[in-house]
Nucleic acid binder design. Structure first.
Lengths: 220, 220
DNA sequence: TAGATTGTTAATCGATTAACAATC
DNA sequence: TAGATTGTTAATCGATTAACAATC
């Protein structure tokens, strides 16, 4: 029906998602129009890239008049498919899991953690605003509530076992904060987010810059 | 001196970093050798890519004999520049900041959060194992302790102000958990890690797969 | 009109993959 | 030797950028 691009490369998704977030802020500030050039600056891209992205995903501007922010946001929201409230659950109430539960429990910037799960009976609290339930209830809960995405914050050793349950459930996506490298498959997309690794990568970048400027100093 | 590649593209760093982490696990299991093919499988890459990466960053294997894990780990550690303990500080002791402080305070998998900072006097605890200090002490602390990387977990509004201090300090890298889009500059590399955005990206991917299979169903 | 910005094409660039000779 | 795996080259692929005509 809608003859639009169905598969969008991950890198493009990242950019589109950032455009949207920047545009929402601009809108909140009362802005009505933007130029490709502005967005490029804001995001460290080339203006060509921005225009190309927009053209590719069906956002038209006005020659000489830039783009209407409302149009862009509407279109981006449709393309990304993130119009509604993004309801999700947290699995594992350790440090990180609890932090996410507290941050996104209720509702925050379009994301809502509607329940959390743990194996430890002492952590359960089924009557809280955002209930903390036994992991055994995970599968039935997500089915009943139509939840499709979960955030995985269990200890690394527990990850494979949980993933087995997840794959048997109605969940289609997992944001994996565990150090375990999990792989996507036909049933379920896994997005690995290993904080330790991110820290390491940053050290690595810093180290590299330092080495380069040392070298420059020697060379100069 | 060392005629090795000094600048490594971000994507390559990501891969090298993952190789290292997989290899450390293999080593822990008692493995001695690997083939490019195995690593490719484990990481969803092509064997060519693995061999290319290794060749490019000075790791040699044995024709028909694969690669020695010890060699690889040693070389990767050197190339990435992550041999020592990665000492860092947490700025902002909200939900996420505290979680990171608890997870990586002390020392864990090569990372150590050695102090945390906050503006709220009630959160301060200078005598704890991992002290929680007033933000005013940030600059002097990182200078005294030689800390080059910080993890930023303050509320979004506070981010720009903190970044000003950071740029005036000896810090060269910031892992930004804030929703503020911060930009790297000559003084300081910023690595943005917006959890809300990561959740959104995952929903987006899930949505896209769903749409595609709907389409396939129609097409079929 | 002159000036500015989009939309789009062609050129460039870099990264990935395929293929195969070298060699253990 | 036959078989397997690396190391490297050339081919492919895709993404980014430059450039400019269209047009407001």
């Amino acid at each position: 029906m809608c003859a639009m691009q169905l598969v969008i490369p991950k890198e493009a998704i990242e950019r589109l998602s950032k455009y949207r977030s920047v545009l929402l802020r601009l809108k909140a500030l009362g802005f009505v129009k933007v130029f490709s050039d502005n967005l490029a600056d804001a995001q460290g891209l080339s203006a060509s890239q921005v225009r190309k992205d927009f053209a590719l995903y069906g956002m038209r501007g006005m020659k000489r008049g830039g783009y209407l922010i409302d149009d862009l946001v509407e279109r981006l929201t449709a393309v990304l498919g993130v119009s509604g409230l993004l309801k999700t659950v947290v699995i594992g109430c350790g440090h990180i899991g609890s932090a996410l539960l507290r941050t996104y429990g209720g509702r925050r910037q379009g994301v809502s953690v509607v329940a959390a799960f743990d194996v430890n009976p002492q952590k359960l609290n089924p009557s809280a605003d955002v209930p903390v339930l036994d992991v055994h209830e995970l599968v039935s809960f997500v089915e009943r509530e139509g939840i499709r995405v979960a955030i995985l914050c269990v200890p690394e050793e527990a990850a494979p076992g949980i993933m087995e349950q997840v794959r048997r459930s109605h969940l289609r996506g997992v944001l994996n904060f565990t150090a375990a490298h999990l792989r996507s498959d036909a049933q379920c997309i896994v997005h690995n987010l290993d904080i330790r690794m991110e820290i390491e990568k940053l050290f690595c970048l810093v180290e590299m810059v330092a080495r380069n400027s040392d070298n420059a100093a020697v060379a100069g």
